[in-house]
Design a protein around this nucleic acid. Structure first.
Lengths: 90, 90
DNA sequence: ACAATACGCAACCATAGGGTTGCGCGTCAA
DNA sequence: TTGACGCGCAACCCTATGGTTGCGTATTGT
């Protein structure tokens, strides 16, 4: 696990909102996620922009994607978050 | 405490190295900190650049500065780090 | 079969942010 | 008092990155 990629993923407020949603629902399609961001957080964002954010979360190991038919199912993993902060809190 | 500012502060690798040093020595002058970054982490950085990073850490509440004569003493506070991750880890 | 849908890819734009250089101001020791 | 040192401020440069638009591809339901 590359901690730098995790912090890079956490740097953006939209991605942090995405993690908020994932912490409540571990599995979501990209469109479900977008709908929730719009409705619950009033985030105006395009599908492509959101897909880019998903890519960043994937590189950080916070999300894994799984092709299901024509949908791309996203699965949250909070593992990296649990380990990344041990650095300064001992 | 503004969590967004904390994540912004954590976004840069140089600032994370600074926190590494602060977690070992809570009080340091700017020059002490610079010397440690250069020696222990081989970071080549100017005083002004480092001062900017300190400003960001201060805005996040991770560091407070105290004027002592002509020196600026920096004091580390890990409080914000301890609370900021509760968001997704429950 | 075919229209709608979910998606990936690529080019492009605009801004944020990390870094540098240059200057000036206090502070302190000789 | 005067020179060296620690620092703040401001202008500038360059790259990373978040966002958009446009197009092509694959999958699905009717």
């Amino acid at each position: 696990m590359d901690k730098d990629l995790v912090f890079k993923a956490l740097a953006d407020p939209t991605r942090r909102l995405m993690l908020d949603e994932f912490s409540e629902r571990k599995e979501q399609t990209l469109y479900e996620l977008m709908a929730r961001l719009i409705m619950r957080h009033k985030v105006a964002i395009s599908r492509q922009a959101l897909a880019k954010h998903v890519d960043v979360l994937e590189e950080a190991g916070l999300v894994s994607s799984e092709k299901r038919g024509k949908y791309r199912m996203l699965v949250f993993d909070d593992g990296p978050l649990r380990t990344v902060m041990d650095r300064w809190l001992k």
